[in-house]
Write a protein that binds this DNA or RNA. Sequence first.
DNA 1: TTGTACGCGTTATCAG
DNA 2: CTGATAACGCGTACAA
Lengths: 354, 354
Amino acid sequence: MSSEAGRRASRRSTRSVTLAEVAEHAGVSPQTVSRAIRTPDVVSEDTLERVQASIRATGYVPNLAASNLASNRSNTIAVLIPAVSASVFADTVQGLDSVLAPHGYHLFIGTTEYSLQQEEATLRALLGRRPDGVVLVGTEHTPEAQALLAAARVPVVESWELTQHPVDSVVGFSNYAAMSALFEHVHALGYRCPVLAGQFAGGDVRALRRRAAFEDGMRRLYPGVPVRILDSGAAGVSLDAGRDLFRQVRSELPRADLIMFASDVFATGATLEAVRSGVAIPGELGITGFGGFEVGRHLVPQLTTMAIPSRRIGEEAGRVLLERIAAGGRQTGEARIVDVGHTLVLGESTVWQR
Amino acid sequence: MSSEAGRRASRRSTRSVTLAEVAEHAGVSPQTVSRAIRTPDVVSEDTLERVQASIRATGYVPNLAASNLASNRSNTIAVLIPAVSASVFADTVQGLDSVLAPHGYHLFIGTTEYSLQQEEATLRALLGRRPDGVVLVGTEHTPEAQALLAAARVPVVESWELTQHPVDSVVGFSNYAAMSALFEHVHALGYRCPVLAGQFAGGDVRALRRRAAFEDGMRRLYPGVPVRILDSGAAGVSLDAGRDLFRQVRSELPRADLIMFASDVFATGATLEAVRSGVAIPGELGITGFGGFEVGRHLVPQLTTMAIPSRRIGEEAGRVLLERIAAGGRQTGEARIVDVGHTLVLGESTVWQR
DNA sequence: TTGTACGCGTTATCAG
DNA sequence: CTGATAACGCGTACAA
């Protein structure tokens, strides 16, 4: 026995059907089976049929980990979003999937919980899967994350923001410009004392950009008027938080004539609370949102908001990835910047003042 | 040259750092590096530090495809949901992730578009990744999908429904029982002519169960009263569809005194349309939903609905998976059935009749 | 059109 | 506690 060098017990534990077993069943070489799957037109019709029959008979499911290892392609795109349950990003993911799935790419989704540290950790884990591309939300990352992305040597798309210096490419819009445009609109309507309400302590960088736009707008268009900002704190982005912010404004800032919410979610909770408590919108108080969710069009009064094409962000990101992958799969150095823009939605929740 | 047998160009194309390179850098064997990562406590403190330094210095990111291949474990759970953007399932995914992530499992998400054929195709693709577990929405699958699941020999959790004969285990509730309970409640309130509205042509099996509960309820508690059901058809589950269904009921079924919607989404669109068009709810017409979404509590009037613990479904599914994986990772044969139940939410959109 | 011989990067196994 | 060696399942390169 000691001379039986090299004989070891098989390590296969799952005992799933392999390519070799299909080959044996069909009476061809493993390589032919591989070809029958990946490049059927290069195999004779006769063998092709035989192999396909054997695949069905054996219930063969290709091991993509092995395929990945051998070919250096995973047909996988890593997607990092703040949270799965945040519907705006779900739309982006849906858009991504709709563009990439037809090309055989699957999405590997990781969440960051709006934390750059968490993003780095998740990114590290996802890169272990050797994705053919990466999609991130945001343009701010830890230095380590930046290094990881650079070392990965695959196309990277940052999104939901714009920057002149993306890691590779970026698909998004300017949160600052969008909020500024909305601000200028309500200023033109004649509002005298706008306040901002939202969540700014949760690590959402994009919300901070919107806040900056509000602050700068106040200084520029309302010199002398105090800048009032209410933060929901740890409450998160929810209808409850919107309701609470509304109540807080009513009790603490009675002179406010307009509440600009950092998200349609807050604005919806606030609008419904106004209805319930009998506060006339826009008569007593104006309300604006941000995001352009479906519910805004249904609210009574309809919500004035800034619509963001969240699904299109995903679709464009998918196209950029496909393009880059086709071009060699590497980051080329020439940054690609796609601005999907924003659209002012004039609702009934704001009105011409006098 | 011809005698230089076996010399070939390297096939490595991505040239990412490998375990061997870290080993060389640290002056140890590859196996020691592997151990330093996977079982640090079995490595001497001295070497451990050296290896960790080398990992940082080289920017090493483990190739999980290789790890997967060698160890037969992917630390991956495949999740199949009807759609990413359907918020109920997003909550389930979030719940799953919250339980599984701490144990090192990542989710691979695939969508089925409410189609069993699509489910089978997506399942096939995901199984190629050799997940350590599978979570599905629904208990109905194609025969081929059933075979695939059986052959995969990993824990499988079906969800959002109940069955006495799951593939492996099931976490959910009875859509029939939930809808029946809601129906009995409104019957007890004294409604005389309830109608059902929703989407039943889209392939959503769970919606069909709710419809069956409505039909049976009508036959049982309203003998002689015609069974009225409105289908939004291809419109999908949206606020727009809810608004349109509401209008349709008003114009086509003027004698209806209660609309039972198959989803809170429809009910929300309908309630807001009622507010806009000046129809008194519950005065002129009662409304119920299904799902127990946050928005229902904020609507004016608050929505009467049947709440489903969608996040808890994910959490329980995660626990079942962990348990099964710990127990050997295979389907054991003893089905595990977890009923998360349902909760009647009494809102203001229905009221005692007379 | 088909077959043969590696190699992809990691871990299991066994020996030291 | 550490190292050497052989898998894991498939694709690439080359030969036939």
